[in-house]
Design a binder for these strands. Structure first.
Length: 480
RNA sequence: GGCCCAUUCGUCUAUCGGUUAGGACGUCAGAUUUUCAUUCUGAAAAGAGGAGUUCGACUCUCCUAUGGGCUACCA
């Protein structure tokens, strides 16, 4: 038995933002490597020159770093198996492709797009007919010398079947006649994914390949390549897709949120990672909250499920709220601060943070929760009518003057002092404290839902502001 | 169309031949609460359908249905 180190890789194409499915693939590859004391490698697959998106590589670095998935080797950190960007490895692919041609496992193909189009069958499918495989050596040399554009195609046998064992899906068998003579080297000299992934995974000594299940049916093609070279085939773990709903995959084309979007919406990276880890994998116990380190310890491919999972933003919010609640108060405050920028009314922001922390799920909830601070006028007076607290517009009109008087004479404007003043006032007027508190809270915020009770809202707004608001509410009640 | 894969509460999932089919989110109902929220308790909620195999199937086999993937000089 070989005791070689486990090496996994994350091999994204720099085509835009990192979507959640990609992030999960990276996460699982990372977890598996770390669980087995191995290495996690980053490789940039930029062989499709047309889909390249500027800055996408920077996004990949940023995302990985934010997620805490540090790579041991990669374009930015180097390593013994570089370069780690495929466009810088062109000479390597060409050399290996030609090796395959010499061994008859691949061949030059000079077919034009027009001819290829004629190969489309009645059901709309195209399958290459190995036309150029039958060219004589002299014919090939002549075309090459004449500068006819060429590609190199894989020569797959049409008899028999290929079986391999996937760590997630088990045994998969595909009839060889279903396989195509894939293009290995494109006419622009770049390799296709079909070729580059094999060459690079071998050269980079990748032992375990984690990738989306869309590659499941073409894996036999890759295995034939490994065999043709006489290379060891890595272990595969194909991953089920993450869906937007039962029918559709999560996709950036449909505007589904990607990792950066969630960060921008005030979700915590650890919470996103935790949630994503559990989409398609389970720890075989009922724990739901995992730090990255805990995930490393708990991870096992046997817990990866075979069926796709629908992404549930509601549950992500719940998990994120758990993380938000556990934040040290100063850190919560620091993270919430950017969302306080728009607040113009002077309020005690530290107190606001303390009130908000147990109440919001994501930081983007802050503006709505704090909206009452700057926007007070013209709220619906019917808010004073509330069956649950047995409050009403009429009662508010009757009670507010006394409340204003009591609070105006209060010097200590702390929450405790405020509550201490309001409670006896209710008793004195033969009211349930709930009734009074409801009235004061509405009078001071004009909102049905607020990030705290009456006394807390008063304390937050400060004496002058709170008294002024109560008076204004009373005026409106009287004029109504 | 062909091939590959999948199918347990609305959603994420446990179960790896014998369970009252468990948990979580969400929902609903109560309790606590200084409103809202938190917290706590409880409830409703699932094996796609049909054949087998078996003393016994969610679990194994086959068929069907449904969904997804692949079928590119995209990855």
């Amino acid at each position: 038995m070989s005791t070689s180190t486990v090496r996994t890789r994350f091999a994204p194409s720099p085509t835009g933002f990192m979507h959640i499915g990609n992030l999960r693939t990276a996460l699982y590859a990372y977890l598996f490597a770390k669980k087995n004391s191995g290495q996690f490698i980053l490789r940039i697959e930029d062989t499709d020159r047309e889909r390249l998106v500027e800055d996408a590589v920077a996004t990949i670095y940023a995302t990985l770093s934010l997620a805490g998935l540090g790579h041991d080797e990669g374009p930015d950190v180097g390593g013994l198996h570089g370069p780690y960007t495929q466009s810088e490895r062109r000479h390597i692919y060409e050399k290996y492709a030609k090796e395959l041609v010499n061994a008859s496992h691949a061949y030059y193909c000079f077919c034009t797009k027009e001819r290829l189009d004629t190969l489309t069958d009645e059901t709309g499918n195209r399958r290459y007919d190995k036309h150029c495989l039958h060219l004589s050596k002299a014919e090939v040399e002549a075309k090459l010398a004449a500068g006819v554009p060429w590609v190199i195609r894989q020569n797959v046998p049409q008899e028999g079947a290929t079986t391999f064992s996937d760590m997630v899906y088990g045994e998969i068998t595909v009839e060889n006649r279903e396989l195509h003579d894939n293009v290995l080297l494109k006419s622009d000299g770049f390799p296709t994914y079909n070729f580059a992934n094999v060459v690079d995974d071998h050269l980079m000594e990748i032992t375990h390949v984690f990738r989306g299940m869309e590659y499941l049916s073409s894996t036999p093609n890759y295995n034939m390549l490994y065999d043709a070279f006489g290379w060891a085939i890595p272990r595969y773990a194909h991953l089920p897709h993450i869906m937007r709903d039962k029918q559709h995959k999560l996709s950036k084309r449909h505007g589904d949120a990607n990792f950066e979007d969630f960060i921008a919406k005030g979700f915590l990276p650890e919470a996103i990672l935790n949630y994503v880890a559990l989409l398609g994998w389970n720890p075989k116990n009922e724990v739901e909250k995992f730090s990255l380190q805990e995930l490393v310890e708990a991870f096992d491919v046997s817990g990866i499920s075979k069926s796709s999972a629908v992404f549930d933003g509601v549950k992500l919010r719940w998990l994120n709220a758990q993380y938000v609640k556990e934040l040290p108060p100063q850190q919560f405050h620091a993270l919430a601060a950017p969302y306080y920028g728009a607040i113009s009314t002077p309020v005690n922001l530290n107190l606001l943070s303390a009130l908000l922390q147990p109440r919001i799920s994501a930081f983007s909830d802050v503006p709505e929760a704090a909206e009452f601070i700057d926007s007070f006028e013209g709220y619906d007076l019917a808010l004073f009518d509330n069956a649950g607290s047995k409050s009403s517009v009429q009662l508010a009109k009757e009670t507010l003057p006394a409340a204003i008087a009591a609070l105006e004479s209060l010097a200590d404007w702390s929450n405790d002092a405020l509550f201490g003043a309001l409670e006896p006032l209710a008793a004195q007027r033969d009211l349930k404290k709930k009734q009074l508190l409801w009235i004061v809270r509405i009078a001071v915020t004009g909102r049905l839902s607020t990030p705290g009770g009456a006394s807390e809202m008063c304390a937050l707004l400060g004496k002058a502001q709170a008294i002024e608001r109560m008076k204004q509410s009373l005026r409106r009640l009287r004029n109504a």
